[in-house]
Design a protein around this nucleic acid. Structure first.
Lengths: 236, 236
DNA sequence: ACAAAAGTGTTATGGATACACCCATGT
DNA sequence: ACATGGGTGTATCCATAACACTTTTGT
């Protein structure tokens, strides 16, 4: 009763908004398109779903193919939403599932697959992107900004062992605000399951200053209480 | 260079988790399937995307077709996420975009389209649903529960003019908790843009008690500060 | 009169903020 | 010595929770 060719076929793709924090700024991974449409434009990495893989699997595969990243297995991938406007791709009907991904450090990407080249660009300084990728990128930034308040997501931007200063700089880069180091520290340590100390370990961060204690992600999915942005959560 | 038939075609569907609040409880709209697979099972309303409509448009159309609701234009539809596991539908490869919808009152549904019949079922008392709809329903409930904390979403469950008691019962039904009427009232009124009073109007709610003042949705997208669940936001 | 729901007042608690201050390291 | 970032202490402020109390209706 259901003929799989009775309907106009839909192509299903994934698009990835890949973020990292480096030098106190938020960076976004872009690829330069090698083919029409939008040849020569910058775009979010992504590609078509294969018949036997889920959108999550496709996102991970495309990220590896187009950037050359080796360690995609452990990366945090979060499904954002699906963009399905009929005219969003001039070629054909394409429904795209968008993901936000977070990587620690900033591994140098090597263009591959359909991408002419790939590069990290400071968030906010990218030009207009191909397709509806400006919209996707804005949605992705909004999402991770909100997730930082309620989840332990910020640890995904960090190496396995990190200092509280590094963690704080993640918040500052994504939110674009400054945070009080002392109060940030207390809030994080008072939130059960956010971070766990690494006994005895310490590391210099900025080259100067007192070596900072090291922590690991605590595994808590949600933060109680939430770590609200300083400019929000205010009454009139 | 891109052949639209080079890939196995994907069918794209929408699934809707439609909630309402009635008699102090949260209800979910289900349809009984008339065709295989899962004939006779209860499922979320939904259906296939047409070639020229977005997922949002398809969701609104399917809701009207399968339930007979007249006023689908103003309903709140929120995209949840997309379910794309290759084996989630035994017939073929189906990628489904899930939505949560909220309706005030509880208009009586009339089965139509592919649905044998449609009915409101108290949330939590539904049996196992077809496909992966149990999972979708759980995700939808989690999402709206969280949205109530941070957005004015609760007003979408209410008629255009509502009392603060009605608004509070929305929170209580979705969260499954009791709330202090006095403190709830103050929180709502102290949150800019959440509700605006209707001058001079009042209405009896339970048949007894003092008539309550009427309010309209204030149009605020996000609540500052958030209206947190009583059992959450606690330290250890 | 009583019950029920709306609405106001009041107090105690606790978290957040702001900022002062000490510690340990590199230059 | 000094700059820099880590880390601790602390007083003020303000939102919240808890609950007593008043108001207005139906039965």
């Amino acid at each position: 009763m259901y003929d799989k060719h009775a309907y106009e076929p839909f192509a299903v793709t994934v698009d990835l908004a890949v973020f990292t924090v480096r030098a106190g700024r938020l960076w976004i991974l872009l690829v330069e398109r090698g083919a029409e449409p939008f040849a020569g434009w910058w775009a979010l990495p992504g590609g078509f779903l294969r018949p036997d893989e889920s959108a999550e699997a496709a996102a991970r595969r495309e990220l590896a193919e187009e950037t050359g990243f080796a360690e995609v297995a452990g990366l945090h991938l979060e499904q954002l939403r699906t963009y399905s406007e009929p005219d969003r791709d001039p070629r054909m009907r394409v429904v795209s599932v968008a993901f936000a991904a977070l990587v620690p450090g900033a591994p140098e990407p090597t263009g591959g697959g359909d991408a002419a080249r790939a590069a990290w660009v400071p968030f906010g300084e990218q030009g207009p992107l191909a397709f509806d990728h400006d919209r996707i990128l804005t949605d992705a930034h909004d999402r991770i900004g909100g997730e930082l308040e309620r989840t332990g997501l910020a640890t995904e931007f960090c190496e396995p062992e990190f200092t509280l200063g590094e963690l704080r700089r993640v918040y500052e880069a994504v939110w674009g605000t400054g945070l009080d180091p002392a109060n940030f520290r207390r809030k994080v340590l008072a939130t059960p399951g956010f971070v766990t100390p690494v006994a005895g370990a310490s590391r210099l961060t900025g080259g100067r200053g007192k070596p900072a204690a090291l922590y690991r992600a605590g595994g808590a999915a949600t933060l109680h209480p939430p770590l609200l942005r300083p400019t929000e959560g205010r009454r009139s």
